[in-house]
Design a protein around this nucleic acid. Structure first.
Lengths: 112, 112
DNA sequence: GGCATATTCAACCTTTCGGTTGACGATTAT
DNA sequence: ATAATCGTCAACCGAAAGGTTGAATATGCC
């Protein structure tokens, strides 16, 4: 990982890690709680969190025996900056992403 | 799940491939010409181009015995959409992008 | 036809990735 | 004190990534 962008894009290339990031969009979470919805060991999730931390996409703070994971969305700006150099700065509406989130965290009784 | 973003981010995670993309920002190029500035075999570059093609970031068209590589910047919009869901949609200036390019090209170490 | 050019294929190698398991240090609860 | 919980570490594994080399396939040129 010689370059910052290497670590960033590589971190984002894994679906488990992207799912973790969207989970953290809701709220800070303990490692165990992050792991809960996944069908893999806690150790595996712990590794994913380390990768996300090294990429700067999250930060981890230990309070007591619980390690809290916090999204660091500013880091994604590096991605945006790089990508937008290719001319993709047309108005990007959040529609698609919001629909995705809405579906992901859908609550009963809520109508679009 | 969405294999699409996996392939996209993974393709962007390699510095050689990102360098190729920025080269193609200038103009369409033949495979041999793409390979020229790199210290690796033509076969290696060919593989990188295949990965970029499968990710949708470039297209390749064979005319005669020359295969032309063309940037497909629209594909990066998928990245933008996903990333901007995290709130990083402040105005991005190309100044910043150019600094990134300078940093990218300073890294490899062939020139100094 | 015969040869050079352009690109990929196939086989191989080494390193990294994503996962597992079991043991461990640290903290909290009983 | 003892037990349970939280999270990481270490060793291991199979698969994939990124590279090499040499042969193969097209295509263009004389």
């Amino acid at each position: 990982m010689d370059n910052r962008l290497d670590a960033l894009f590589a971190a984002l290339a894994d679906p488990t890690r992207r799912a973790i990031l969207t989970m953290l969009l809701e709220d800070d979470m303990a490692v165990t709680d992050v792991a809960e919805p996944f069908q893999m060991s806690l150790a595996a999730i712990s590794k994913h969190l380390t990768i996300l931390t090294r990429a700067g996409l999250i930060s981890q703070e230990k309070r007591g025996r619980v390690k809290w994971c916090k999204l660091e969305p500013d880091t994604m700006r590096d991605v945006t900056v790089w990508v937008q150099g290719f001319g993709q700065f047309e108005p990007v509406h959040l529609d698609a992403f919001e629909r995705f989130l809405a579906a992901e965290f859908a609550e009963p009784g809520e109508t679009g």
